[in-house]
């Protein structure tokens, strides 16, 4: 079942067409939303939430028509890109308030606020004013307020923006955990494609208001043919010449990693590579069937 389906949707800001005749079915699970700046990612999210009214077309979120935004927002959690909080509130009061705004009774909202804050890893800091929070804590509290009312679909706009490596890893683990086996689908929008790669199963690529590509990430990453990647300790020109002679043309080299055209099965290719390396007394430190990174796939899709 699709968590959201849009049919020939057009959204405009004045004369600027942000989404142009846009048709898509977003599937359950964790879906990444990719696209350059201004491609319409945030517009898509805001349309799903009913912030923007489409000028043409129709759509539904979790089986609810776009016009019934109140019901949609009941079922959807939204983590905006911008830093946001309610001024003058402590972390836990803020999250409980967000729960109350979603219709939870006061006591339930407070109980649930503590639960999701625990879950998002905000410890004692929850009793402090949100304005004193660091970037990482602000991202966590934004996630907490988005999931407090138990949504079925979570819309995350740049959840790892401004986080340091440790914070990024933790945030991605949180997103991955809530989106797998908890009955919660997630739509993540990010410029950091490795983040999408780590959390999502599927990706949508948007370009200039149009859907450019949609598919499972592992399919997007596939490369034509059967190239393999070989990692040596140090770059070696001799190896390069000899491996070509062995019938494996070099596609490209990055530092000491060679991407080679493979003649057949990986095992056969490995034997050729090892034989060549052995002649030169080099050791092969890595060998695997080549995949492109999501970033390469993305850059290819939009060009």
């Amino acid at each position: 079942m699709a968590v959201a389906s849009l049919h020939q949707l057009t959204v405009k800001y004045g004369d600027f067409v942000a989404l142009d005749d846009f048709t898509v079915d977003i599937s359950e699970g964790c879906v990444g939303l990719l696209g350059p700046n201004g491609a319409g990612k945030t517009t898509l999210i805001k349309t799903l939430l009913g912030f923007l009214t489409p000028t043409a077309g129709s759509g539904s979120v979790l089986g609810t028509d776009l016009s019934d935004w109140r019901r949609i927002r009941q079922l959807v959690g939204y983590m905006p890109e911008q830093d946001c909080h309610i001024p003058g509130m402590s972390g836990v009061a803020f999250v409980a308030y967000a729960g109350e705004l979603a219709g939870m009774p006061k006591e339930q909202a407070l109980r649930r606020a503590h639960e999701v804050l625990e879950y998002c890893g905000l410890g004692e800091a929850r009793y402090r004013n949100v304005e004193t929070y660091s970037t990482g804590m602000r991202q966590r509290i934004k996630l907490a307020q988005a999931i407090v009312h138990g949504p079925k679909l979570l819309l995350l706009d740049e959840p790892t923006n401004g986080l340091d490596p440790a914070g990024r890893v933790e945030m991605l683990e949180l997103v991955r955990e809530v989106s797998h086996g908890k009955g919660l689908s997630v739509l993540v929008c990010s410029h950091l494609l490795p983040d999408i790669e780590k959390t999502c199963d599927e990706a949508l690529v948007i370009l200039r208001g149009k859907l450019r590509e949609q598919g499972l990430i592992k399919n997007l990453k596939k490369v034509d043919g059967h190239p393999v990647e070989v990692e040596l300790g140090e770059p070696s020109p001799e190896f390069e010449t000899m491996i070509v002679q062995a019938g494996m043309p070099v596609i490209h080299r990055k530092l000491a990693t060679y991407r080679l055209e493979s003649p057949g099965s990986p095992q056969e290719a490995l034997h050729r590579v090892l034989a060549t390396a052995a002649k030169l007394d080099l050791s092969v430190r890595g060998f695997h069937v080549a995949e492109r990174s999501l970033e390469e796939a993305f850059l290819e899709a939009i060009n």
């Binding site: 990986p266 890595g286 060998f287 695997h288």
Partner: peptide
């Protein structure tokens, strides 16, 4: 019969 090897923490 090895299909590939690599170092995940390199």
């Amino acid at each position: 019969p090895v299909n590939g090897f690599q170092s995940p923490d390199n």
